[in-house]
């Protein structure tokens, strides 16, 4: 198809690849700076190396999932643009949704190479970029003030209320854990809700695959935690999330056939 050969041209690879190289360089600079600052602050180097290993293994499987997003979009938008979008700033759940909505909004109808025009493509590309910039914009205009406010100790007051506020700072860790529990719960509850009302109000006929995969992953994680706690094997931490995900994703292949 002619449009796809245009959207897959070497010039587009060069433009998108160039931006990706820039962002990769930014990541590298931030990592090196953080590592050096960590050493200067006396943070144990082995701890930082563990973080790098754990984060690298953690990221592999979700990255392959993201690659599938690139493949899915490449049929209608060519390969370079989805490659850029999902390497930089984009999000797996966001890109397909916005690309589809943008395609309909600019009159290209269903997102497909058959109905795609060069103008529809550039307009969709602009929309995909513009709709998701808000986190960056807010960091730019308010990031320093916001993060400084979060880091500052409570200012002492005449009535001595600073003591109370200072103790409120101890709530930081439980708050982070709670926020994360909230995040995870929204998704797990969504999977249960899909079973209960996904195919009609309280019909219990919705797909149970997502919940079953999450349950297998949770069980695999419980095994990893047990190994760690029983044998004092701290190294397990670095691979437990990636390992649990791998087990659950393999299980999904079999569960998918059964459900």
């Amino acid at each position: 198809m002619e449009i796809l050969s245009k959207l897959n041209s070497p010039v587009l690879y060069l433009i998108c690849g160039g931006i990706i190289v820039f962002v990769a360089a930014v990541c590298l600079i931030f990592a090196v700076r953080a590592y050096k600052a960590g050493k200067a602050l006396g943070i144990d180097v082995s701890k930082m190396r563990r973080v790098i290993t754990a984060s690298a293994t953690f990221a592999v499987l979700p990255s392959i999932g993201i690659l599938l997003g690139v493949i899915a979009l490449s049929g209608s938008l060519g390969t370079p643009w989805p490659w850029l979008r999902l390497s930089v700033i984009g999000a797996l759940h966001y890109e397909t949704q916005v690309a589809q909505a943008a395609s309909e909004a600019v009159g290209a109808g269903q997102l497909s190479a058959a109905t795609m025009t060069t103008q529809a493509f550039t307009t969709i590309a602009l929309l995909m970029s513009f709709c998701i910039i808000w986190g960056m914009v807010l960091m730019l205009i308010n990031g320093k003030r916001y993060s400084t406010r979060l880091a500052l100790p409570a200012a002492p007051k005449k009535d001595g209320s600073s003591v109370k506020k200072k103790s409120l700072k101890d709530f930081g860790d439980p708050a982070m854990t709670a926020m994360f529990i909230g995040l995870v719960s929204a998704y797990i509850a969504g999977y249960i809700g899909t079973i209960v009302s996904g195919e009609g109000f309280f019909t219990f006929k919705g797909s149970a695959l997502s919940l079953a995969v999450a349950a297998v992953s949770a069980m695999a994680m419980a095994v990893f935690i047990r190994i760690k706690e029983k044998n004092g094997a701290d190294w397990v931490d670095s691979f437990s999330v990636a390992g649990s995900m791998l087990v659950a994703m393999i299980a999904a292949i079999f569960l998918g056939k059964m459900m």
Partner: peptide
Amino acid sequence: NVVPALFGAMAC
């Protein structure tokens, strides 16, 4: 099912 696999492990 990458996301359910991720959140299952994190939930545990």
